[in-house]
């Protein structure tokens, strides 16, 4: 049989080779690099140390880390609060109109986040559209400092990442069997109970998937912090970039990156658990 399936061996061989070489190997190298010492003229010196991980807990870096986690968490929560009702309404829209409504979310999903962040700059500039409008309306007498503030960064990240939250939520809500809600009504559950005990648990995988697609990039998107937050190092992403391109401390940058990978693994585990629970005892 094997000789009759050359295609199988070529296809499987190619993809495995590629992923091993350009996905597994580089990430393994990051892990290794994170426990090496900083080199003199090389980027690394081949000696084991946990110094880089200890430095992540240094107050200077820890505050960046915690700030970044806070910003990312806030972005994720905001996207969820805005996105969930939106995705719900989308899933309930009549099938004919739904395709178009969905397309209007898919387009920004694929659109360059850099371009969209730049569009945000235009709005928020000192002489940007929002200030001009507020001045024109006479609500303010001098322009507000909107750009280069923390709220600007949060707004920018929400703007860039909202589609990444909406699409998985929509996928989960669209799959939701309407009969389950009717059954819950029939059994005497109120609207709040249904939402809390039926809809939320069944769409939890979608919520976690959306959180994953929002939270992780929100830690890394250094250009959003650059363009909207000014020169301050605000995100883990900026920290990592600076270690690799400015400070040239690759082991430390690798340790920060390994931490992101660890967070991703944690979220994926949560996703796996929740989707198992949501699917258990559903349809055969």
């Amino acid at each position: 049989m094997k000789t009759r399936e050359p295609f199988k061996w070529v296809a499987v061989g190619t993809i495995w080779t590629w992923l091993a070489l350009f996905a597994l190997l580089p990430n393994a190298m990051v892990l290794v690099a994170s426990v090496l010492e900083r080199g003199q003229d090389q980027f690394f010196a081949f000696a084991f140390t946990l110094a880089s991980y200890r430095r992540l807990l240094d107050p200077l870096y820890l505050s960046v880390l915690l700030d970044s986690l806070y910003l990312a968490a806030l972005t994720t929560v905001l996207c969820l609060l805005i996105g969930y009702p939106f995705a719900y309404l989308l899933a309930q829209a009549p099938a004919r109109r739904r395709a178009l409504l969905l397309l209007l979310v898919i387009i920004p999903f694929w659109t360059s986040s850099l371009v969209r962040t730049y569009a945000m700059v235009i709005l928020l500039k000192t002489n940007g559209l929002i200030n001009q409008m507020l001045l024109g309306l006479g609500w303010i007498s001098e322009p507000l400092e909107l750009l280069y503030t923390t709220p600007a960064v949060i707004a920018g990240m929400c703007y860039a990442l909202l589609p990444f939250m909406i699409l998985p939520l929509y996928a989960a809500l669209e799959k939701l069997d309407r009969r389950l809600i009717e059954a819950a009504h029939d059994l005497g559950a109120g609207r709040v109970t249904i939402f809390r005990r039926v809809i939320i648990p069944l769409t939890l995988p979608g919520i976690i998937a959306g959180a994953m697609l929002t939270f992780l990039p929100a830690l890394g998107m250094f250009y959003v912090a650059d363009l909207l937050g000014g020169a301050k190092t605000m995100l883990v992403g900026n920290l990592i970039r600076d270690q690799f391109l400015a400070a040239r401390d690759w082991p430390f940058g690798s340790a920060a990156s390994a931490m992101l990978t660890g967070l991703m693994a944690l979220l994926m585990w949560a996703y796996y658990q929740s989707s198992r629970r949501a699917n258990r005892g559903a349809l055969p």
């Binding site: 580089p26 190298m29 990051v30 690099a33 990039p217 990592i240 690759w250 690798s254 990156s257 992101l260």
Partner: peptide, 12 residues
């Protein structure tokens, strides 16, 4: 995350 992939490939 893009940044993780970016630096991993840079190291490679």
């Amino acid at each position: 995350p893009d940044i993780v992939m970016g630096i991993a490939l840079l190291i490679l």
